[in-house]
Design a protein around this nucleic acid. Structure first.
Length: 479
RNA sequence: GUCCCCAUCGUCUAGCGGUUAGGACUCCGGAUUUUCAUUCCGGCAACAGGGGUUCGAAUCCCCUUGGGGAUGCCA
């Protein structure tokens, strides 16, 4: 039994798509599950769309997700000579031919077919021309001579055996007229040369598989096993596969949205793959459990709510020091300034209560921001209202305005020992004195101190904030 | 148009001939919590339709419908 070797082969155009990392993830998991190797190959044969920045993004995002590759081919384009060598061999064998039809002629034929609502199937008149009769000094492409009848079988571990009638497969181009190899050729040659045993990739490649099998056959090479995974579709109610217009598609978007790598890892794993009722699955567990038979055949819609929910689990579980570190840049962005060491210390003290209440790092920065903003920011209507909302008096129709309760009590607060216990005693007594429910009474105070109705436990926050700062904020609210 | 793939709650999924069709997200109740979040209980909600095969189909076969992909000198 050959050692399993999978590959992730992105093309460096733009950013790394979320569907791309999922493909990488499945390749990685399958390889690791089988004790094999996972290789990364940059498919940069299209020089017009290639950008070096895109390659850096691929490296960054894969590393961020913890998908370390065991081997890398940094440039497929660099191997073009070898690809051309194979093309020539095919030519010599008579399995391929030179086609002198121009792009313009081709476009015309295609257009005509569309107009007449016919299936476009190009039949080159050069297919059976003797090489001795080829014109000289004329541009040509190299095409594969696809069998006219019979069928080509693709063995797919996810879909089973898929067969394609050869009559529907056209004579695909192997080499462009500028003498550069095309992806279809390069993939096959590289997969073979690198010893790839399992080609796991998006379903959009399923139609390419028979063409690649045909090339393999023409070369007399062993075919790999395929695994075409379903596409990630647009969110519920929207059409097509997930794309930019449906929202976040780049891995970078999720990093910026405050996802933890393990959160995205887990969500993506479950999107198109299942293992019984298991939802929270660690990396180690995933490697142990992952197999191609668990891959769901139907396309899966991306659900941001669930992704965030899963991420929330990991935020709560994560080490506090780590979440603190990760939250700092988000907080600095929000505050638009660098945090001092003292502030970082404060953040880490606040974090245990913060991380329990948020689902992303962005939310963590939002929730913790009141520790660092002395002036009350613009509040939304609902929150603002709490500041003036009358507090009902127990067993009566009456109610008291928050100011009535708080604004004359500063003198006593100033003398108070500023601890959770004494604050607790103090406010309990205050609520009793005014005969109101503690929870109701504390709500406006919460907003005055933390500018939100959602905060860490109030007394704890007040202690961290310090007496002076709290009194200042209460004073401001009383004006 | 042609080819290929697919089809269980709104969404992600379990189920692989005999189940009260399970779990998760969302939503709605309730409990805990000084508030919020968490957590815990409970609820709403699905086998696309039609034919077969079978003692018995969500499960197997066929058709219809629906969805997705491909149809490039892109990958």
């Amino acid at each position: 039994m050959k050692k399993v070797k999978t590959r992730f082969a992105p093309s460096p155009t733009g950013y790394l798509h979320i569907g791309g990392v999922r493909t990488a993830l499945f390749n990685y998991l399958y390889a690791k599950h089988c004790g094999g190797e996972f290789v990364l190959r940059i498919e940069d044969t299209d020089r017009e769309r290639y950008t070096p920045e895109a390659i850096e993004l691929i490296y960054r995002d894969l590393k961020w997700m913890g998908l370390a590759w065991d081997e890398i081919m940094e440039s497929q384009f660099a191997r073009r000579d070898r690809h051309m060598e194979v093309a020539n061999e095919l030519l010599v064998k008579g399995a391929a031919y030179k086609c002198f039809t121009t792009k313009e002629e081709l476009a015309e034929l295609r257009e005509k077919a569309t107009e007449e609502k016919r299936a476009f199937r190009f039949e080159s008149k050069w297919r059976d021309v003797d090489p001795a009769d080829y014109p000289i000094d004329q541009e040509y492409v190299v095409r594969l001579k696809t069998p006219l009848d019979g069928e080509t079988i693709v063995n797919d571990d996810i879909r089973g055996t898929v067969s394609f009638p050869n009559k529907d497969i056209d004579d695909l181009i192997l080499v462009r007229s500028d003498n550069t190899p095309v992806y279809q050729l390069s993939v096959v040659v590289d997969d073979h040369d690198m010893g790839i045993t399992h080609v796991i990739r998006g379903e959009e490649h399923l139609n390419n598989a028979p063409k690649q099998v045909l090339i393999m056959k023409a070369m007399g090479w062993d075919e790999p096993t395929y695994g075409h995974i379903p596409l990630i579709l647009a969110p519920a109610g929207q059409q097509g596969k997930l794309s930019k217009r449906h929202g976040a598609t780049a891995v970078g978007d999720y990093i910026n949205a405050g996802f933890l790598p393990e959160g995205l890892f887990n969500y993506l794993l479950r999107l198109g793959w299942g293992h019984g009722d298991d939802e929270i699955i660690s990396r180690e567990q995933a490697i142990e459990w992952f197999d191609l038979s668990g891959v769901v055949k139907a396309g899966a819609r991306f659900d941001m709510q669930k992704a965030i929910s899963v991420n929330g689990y990991y935020i709560r579980e994560a080490d506090t020091a780590r979440v603190t570190e990760l939250t700092i840049p988000f907080l600095e962005k929000k505050l638009d300034r660098i945090l001092t060491d003292a502030e970082k210390e404060l953040l880490s003290k606040a974090m245990p209560e913060v991380q329990e209440r948020v689902k992303t790092l962005v939310e963590a920065a939002d929730l913790a921001s009141f520790y660092f903003i002395s002036e009350m920011p613009e509040l939304d209507e609902k929150t603002k209202k709490v500041l003036d909302k009358p507090i009902p008096v127990n067993d009566s129709e009456e109610s008291k305005h928050p100011k009535e309760i708080f604004c004359d009590s500063f003198a006593k607060l100033e003398e108070l020992d500023w601890t959770v216990d004494s604050l607790n005693d103090y406010f309990n007594a205050l609520a009793e004195k005014h005969n109101v429910k503690l929870g109701k009474m504390l709500q406006p105070l919460r907003v005055a101190i933390a500018y939100s109705t959602i905060t860490p436990p109030l007394y704890e926050a007040m202690v961290l904030l310090g007496k002076e700062e709290c009194l200042k904020r209460m004073n401001n609210a009383c004006d």
